[in-house]
Design a binder for these strands. Structure first.
Length: 158
DNA sequence: GCCAACGTTGGC
DNA sequence: GCCAACGTTGGC
């Protein structure tokens, strides 16, 4: 018995890891999230959940592809790796602070949906939508089924 | 528990 | 590169 499919948006800087990179590797552990809210969302994820792959800090920020959650959350191994920039000395194997999921490539969008187009849909998306909420920097955030539909509806209008 | 300092995110 | 906004840390 599985619960209804849920949806998320995950940000990545394409210079670091892009939708092209995800296509190349197929599945990727989403390492390096060091924000408690984002971590908590990943802990709620289930296999098959839909993911909007968002490119941030780039010339045209926006949604560039679709992915899906490939496994339940587990401890982010980089938190234990002294050589990693994500190493966290406060974390222990017994009580890991940071979790992640693996993300699997689904497809590129026919045309990316840029942030400025997304902003024009604030009335239907809702002002509380974290992606367009003023000052929000959350890198992993929930998307409702209605928002998912609206955002993908923009794919061919971009 | 407050809050200043600091580091980071991410649009522009 | 700038900077506004935010989250976290740590002194008190």
């Amino acid at each position: 018995m599985s619960s209804p499919k849920r949806y998320w948006l995950m940000k990545s800087e394409p210079s670091d890891f892009s939708i092209d990179d995800l296509q190349r590797v197929g599945t990727e552990p989403w390492t390096g999230v060091r924000n408690f809210q984002a971590r908590n969302f990943m802990r709620q994820m289930q296999v098959g959940d839909g993911v909007l792959f968002y490119h941030s800090s780039t010339q045209v920020p926006g949604i560039y592809g679709l992915a899906e959650v490939a496994c339940a959350s587990y401890p982010d191994p980089t938190q234990f790796d002294r050589k990693s920039k994500y190493f966290d000395e406060k974390s222990t194997r017994e009580e890991p602070r940071w979790s992640l999921v693996d993300v699997r490539y689904v497809r590129h969008l026919a045309k990316p949906v840029p942030l400025d187009l997304i902003r024009t849909q604030v009335d239907s998306l809702g002002e509380e939508f974290a992606l367009i909420r003023r000052g929000s920097r959350l890198s992993v955030l929930p998307v409702t089924a209605a928002q998912w539909k609206i955002l993908l509806g923009l794919e061919h209008k971009a």
